[in-house]
Every structure is written in structure tokens, then in C-alpha cells.
């Protein structure tokens, strides 16, 4: 499971400053379990958007937004509503936001921060797209994570290394920052590369205390019963 928490409303509204019409994608997987994208909290988010002058063209629920194929399939059922929106707000982990970005040629904004819970053993994870950095930058980078897509996890643009669009580390891998640049350029937003966001805060990757209080964690933390007999 990837644990997540809602980004502050002001931060989300900041992303949406230039956009009036918003389509919302909410994940029914991990982030729903974290109380971020379940139906109740999604409805709350929609209400907050509308209270701040946004028009919500529709909402889609995707069982596992991290699955690109499934996400694309669900979004095709909402084509008209997605098309009429200026941008898309995604309530899902970083991998989910990137699934949506891969499926649609629209600005995509993260509504959550994926946080590191450290030592949550036994749960299968298939995709390295989200680093659970705790401060999602996918709004700035057009829906492609700079920490996982760039071999050096650079936050301020490509290094001098890419050749023919490929990474200096492995020429079978596309340069993450070239992908980010091309996507932003296709959206007419390449000028966002002028922005210099705050430095990455690695403290956000410390395990989050309040995510450790569920029943799974209780099992995780339970003291094993002592095997030795009484004397």
C-alpha cells in the first residue's frame, strides 16, 4: 500500500489558478483506504472546489489508478467531461497521477502527497513511479515525477547528460526531464520550467506516525509471544 494524505486546499487551488473547469479522478485503492479519495472525501473535495468558484465537469472513480490500462479505460467512459475540463485533479498516489497524465493531454494536478510509511511489509507493489517523497511535485512537472523518472532525481531540469533524448546512465532509458519538457511543451506550459520550487525536504520521507495506528500496524508491532516456559 502507498499511504497518502490530502494536500492543503490552498496548494490545490494554487495549481488550478488558471483553470475554471476541473475534472476529478479519485482512486478506490490505497488513497481511499487512507481517507483521502474515498467517496465521502472526494465529495468534500468537489464541494470545496465549487465553493472556490471552480466548475467540476465530472468525477471518475478508478479501482486502482496506478494501473495505466485500467485508468485509461475508465477515463474513456468520461470522455466528454474530461474534454470539457481545463485540467484534472487526481486524488491518488504519485503513480496514479502519472497514470492519468499518461492517458490524457491535459494539465494534471496531484491532490495528495504520497508519504513514506517505512517497513509496511508483505504488500505487493509493482511500479517504481512514485518515490513517496511526501511533497508531490507532479503539478510543476506536468504529471511525470522528476524523482523517479530522472536518474539523478533532479528537480531543476535536465543535466548536460542526455543524448538523443536518452539518459547518460542507460541509453535504453528516456531522459525523464526530456519527457517532462516535451509534455509541458505539448500542453503549452514549457514556461513553467522558469519556476524554481523549494528544495526537496527529505524529512518528509520519515515514516509517518499516524499512518501506523491501523489494525495492520497493530499486527506489525505486536510483541511475539515468548516461547520459553515458566521456571
Amino acid at each position: 500500500m502507498i499511504a497518502s494524505e490530502r494536500k492543503p486546499t490552498e496548494e490545490i487551488l494554487g495549481y488550478l489558478e488558471a483553470e475554471k473547469k476541473v475534472f476529478v479522478v479519485a482512486c478506490d485503492g490505497c488513497s481511499a483506504g487512507c481517507g483521502v479519495s474515498d467517496p465521502e472525501h472526494t465529495a468534500e473535495m468537489v464541494k470545496e472546489l465549487e465553493a472556490n468558484g471552480k466548475s467540476v465537469t465530472g468525477t471518475a472513480r478508478v479501482e486502482m489508478t496506478c494501473n495505466r490500462g485500467l485508468t485509461a479505460l475508465v477515463l474513456t467512459q468520461h470522455l466528454a467531461d474530461v474534454d470539457s475540463a481545463d485540467g484534472i485533479l487526481v486524488l491518488a498516489c504519485g503513480a496514479g497521477v502519472q497514470s492519468v497524465a499518461a492517458a490524457v493531454e491535459k494539465p494534471v494536478h496531484p491532490g495528495t502527497n504520497s508519504v513514506y510509511v517505512g517497513g509496511f511489509q508483505g504488500l505487493w507493489r509493482s511500479e517504481p513511479r512514485c518515490a513517496e517523497c511526501g511533497n508531490c511535485m507532479l503539478d510543476y512537472t506536468g504529471g511525470i515525477c522528476p524523482y523517479t523518472a530522472c536518474s539523478k532525481s533532479l528537480l531543476y531540469g535536465s543535466c548536460g547528460g542526455p543524448k538523443d533524448g536518452k539518459c547518460e546512465v542507460d541509453d535504453s532509458v528516456e531522459c525523464g526531464w526530456m519527457r517532462i519538457y516535451e509534455r509541458l511543451a505539448a500542453l503549452g506550459r514549457a514556461d513553467r520550467l522558469q519556476e524554481m520550487p523549494p528544495l526537496r525536504n527529505f524529512q518528509n520521507m520519515l515514516p509517518v506516525g499516524d499512518k501506523r495506528r491501523g489494525s495492520l500496524w497493530a499486527l506489525e508491532l505486536a510483541e511475539p509471544e515468548k516461547a520459553e516456559g515458566k521456571d
Binding site: 539523478k152 533532479l154 531543476y156 543535466c159 548536460g160 547518460e168 546512465v169 528544495l199
Partner: peptide, 27 residues
């Protein structure tokens, strides 16, 4: 400068840091 990745050098097994990059080092 940002610097070449460690895998291009003579200690490819080492940990690449890149806590900052060229722009943030200037900052």
C-alpha cells in the same frame, strides 16, 4: 555543476548523492 552520474565513472557501485543540483548549488 550537477556532475556526471557515478555509473559513468570508476566507482559505479557508489551512492549518487545529487541532494542539490547545479541550480540549487548556485542558490
Amino acid at each position: 555543476l550537477t556532475g556526471d552520474h557515478v555509473v559513468l565513472g570508476d566507482h559505479p557501485e557508489s551512492k549518487p548523492v545529487f541532494d542539490l543540483d547545479s541550480v540549487s548549488l548556485l542558490q
